[in-house]
Write a protein that binds this DNA or RNA. Structure first.
Lengths: 336, 336
DNA sequence: CTGAAAGCGCTTACAG
DNA sequence: CTGAAAGCGCTTACAG
């Protein structure tokens, strides 16, 4: 049941004009007589003609698609970024192609296959700081923008949220509530983002005359499950901190889960703060105090920057840092 | 800083063979001498050559992309579908283009612009039951698959979750807990899915000797905000039901929010059940009893079906109904 | 086993 | 204001 599809040549012969004239009308060129224009437009409508995307691309060199690569779509962290990117693509008139690096497919098959005649530019949330991956990105013939990249050094343009200041604010909020023993649950080892948050934690302590105690820093991996397990073990030790700053919201959920399981209450017994402000953060009980990592805006801004690069309009800045903001909800309270 | 890009002709001249031979090697045709094949492959690697997507498409008629259209990306309902679709596209070797119908852009600009030389097939979650939109989809020259479509009649292939049986199970669970006054909070008016859920609610009551009382059915619009407002007003009336079945999880969250605000407890005072089982459902407090609408699977299955259609492998069934499953958590309990 | 020609559906110069 | 020709980078017949 294939419907037949008409080409620009069909429209031309049907309207009794040249292919060139149809092309001009379709592209809103001024130098066409009103009468001719109307005739062509009517014929286009009558035939239900739509130009063939690939043919335009081949000739013009523009695909009109922007690619977005994220590690996976399992967490709201990434879907929020996708949401912002999708909004920007819509608004800027680009199609959005979505890729996931799950099981490293594109690293294997070669990222360059994505780039050539398939997208005009690529925005990427790198799965981990892979030097070689980064180097191959730098070789790509199309513009690239990195999102939330704090790993290996590169000259590639990037859009980041401010991890350091956000973390400082979070910890200073806890200090303001009277907490003196504040724990930190980190993300994966060697993660640039988590390291920045750790740095914010540390500086907040030191600046406020508290000692940094490495025993109060525990290793997570961004996941709720791991955070739950780590916290559960931690709770068996003496002197559990009166407040925990988790490096991301999902870890915070895991911390809270473990505390509840022990029969303690949040924030009565322990205060917990997260980072990111994924939509879920305001839905959980108690509603999570957290730092708003502007994920939607990061996605939006990255695609916007990418479009400027694609369209050769030299952007003012190629490294954009978006502010974070402390959101105080119910999981943080006065120290006992 | 544009990097130069090599074409198949560059590879050919560099390797001292014809363009045709390079093409054959690239497409793994058998009729090439081992020596020639090696030579070509080496040259390809040396030049960092990658074939131009648009050129392949123009010649072959295949874009190798599948399009997914969702109303928006604001709720986990849609992002779960996207997740399944993305998994399927990955596995099947297609690129995934993501579109949102937010502010009706594609209805206006014409859906056919999406289809021609841009995607080999389109999967759509329709924003609402729009007859004309549906008719224009039927005219498209590429395969179409509808997701969770229960609106206007159409012969287009579709993948649905079972709304009716899921709803019945939910309500029968409540009846089993001793509830006799059970409310239903609906979705938008004229929504096929919500109507099916309403039908399940009604039949469950009648089958179990309870009366259907239209006063216990209230009108929502899928959103948490509206559900909150409606429930708040409802709570001002006498005889609030002992259990509420909300047509979707987000509505259930709104119902619970309003009940809590009044100072009542869930499920002690009122039981609440949702529908969909979005990831958030298990995170909220109390964890939501709900019906698992297999959203990821729906997305996955739809793209799989779409690929069969695109590849002309006639699928066994063109209308797929995926089972729902009751997930009992903490928001439902014995009637007082 | 290898190659020269034609053509996919458009747009970009170039003429008139 | 309008059109004939060339060509974007590939692949599909057709020869040899």
């Amino acid at each position: 049941v294939k419907k037949s599809v008409s080409t620009i040549a069909d429209v031309a012969s049907q309207a009794g004009v040249s292919v060139m004239t149809v092309s001009r009308v379709l592209n809103n060129r001024p130098e066409v007589a009103q009468k001719t224009r109307h005739l062509v437009l009517e014929t286009v409508a009558a035939l239900g003609y739509a130009p063939h995307g690939a043919a335009k691309t081949l000739k013009s060199g523009k695909t009109n698609v922007l690619g977005l690569v994220v590690p996976d779509l399992n967490s709201q962290y990434f879907t929020e970024i996708v949401r912002g990117a999708s909004q920007a693509a819509n608004r800027l008139g680009y199609d959005l192609s979505l890729y996931t690096t799950a099981n490293g497919q594109h690293e294997v098959r070669g990222i360059s296959a994505l780039s050539h005649g398939i997208a005009d530019g690529l925005a990427l949330v790198l799965p981990r700081s892979s030097e070689t991956y980064l180097r191959s990105l730098e070789q790509l013939p199309i513009p690239i923008v990195l999102l939330n990249h704090l790993g290996a050094q590169t000259h590639l343009p990037a859009v980041n949220g401010d991890n350091y200041l956000g973390a400082r604010q979070a910890v200073e909020h806890l200090i303001g509530l009277g907490h003196r023993r504040i724990g930190f649950l980190s993300g994966s080892l060697h993660s640039g983002q988590s390291n920045e948050r750790l740095r914010g934690y540390r500086e907040a302590l030191v600046t406020n005359g508290l000692e940094f105690n490495s025993h109060l820093v525990r290793q997570g991996d961004w996941s709720q499950t791991t955070a739950f397990g780590v916290t559960r073990a931690w709770l068996e030790e003496p002197d559990f901190p009166s407040a925990v700053f988790a490096t991301n919201d999902f870890s915070a959920f895991g911390v809270i889960e473990a505390i509840k399981e022990k029969g303690w209450r949040v924030p009565d017994d322990v205060s917990v703060i997260g980072f990111d402000d994924v939509p879920m953060a305001m839905q959980v009980f108690p509603a999570l105090t957290t730092v708003r990592h502007p994920l939607v805006k990061i996605g939006y801004t990255a695609l916007h920057l990418l479009s400027e690069l694609v369209e050769q309009r030299e952007p003012i800045v190629r490294q954009i840092l978006l502010q974070s903001e402390l959101i105080v909800r119910d999981s943080s309270g006065q120290a006992r």
